[in-house]
């Protein structure tokens, strides 16, 4: 049996996962998301990555970004390396794609702050 903690919401249910043949039996989850989380966690753990990219605008030297989906846990540092290579030279809106298909994960890195608003407000 494996013990896990569901990270899908702030409740953080303690989960027990047991293998029955090829199937995982999950207990302890208060909702459906917990079951899916446990199965993913045991077979292909994934996380979102939230970070910042450099910009050329000295009033707003960093812009926050995140992956628009989850990338494999083991690729987080590779994704970070790609993110840290970016130097943003144009003002972007929130939600705009900054890196397409980062590290061939099929996931994009998108802006989570609105650079245009931030520059205007200054």
């Amino acid at each position: 049996m494996k013990n896990l903690i569901c990270i899908e919401c702030p409740i953080g249910c303690g989960l027990q996962a047991e293998k029955n043949g090829e199937q995982w039996i999950i207990k302890g989850n208060r909702c459906r998301k917990g079951e899916q989380f446990a199965i993913n966690e045991l077979t292909d753990p994934r996380r979102s990555v939230c970070s910042t990219v450099k910009t050329i605008f000295k009033e707003v030297p960093r812009l926050s970004v995140r992956t628009d989906g989850e990338v494999p846990l083991k690729s987080i540092f590779e994704v970070m390396e790609q993110i840290n290579r970016v130097i943003l030279e144009r003002p972007v809106h929130i939600g705009e794609v900054i890196i397409e298909n980062v590290c061939n994960t099929g996931i994009n890195v998108i802006a989570t702050s609105d650079l245009i608003y931030l520059l205007e407000a200054k």
Partner: peptide, 22 residues
């Protein structure tokens, strides 16, 4: 607060802090 996890109750989405504020 650029990490995600904001707004699960209100928007049923995992937003980052700046996105929630926006």
């Amino acid at each position: 607060c650029i990490h995600d996890g904001f707004g699960l109750v209100r928007f049923k989405e995992k937003l980052t802090g700046p996105e929630y504020a926006h």
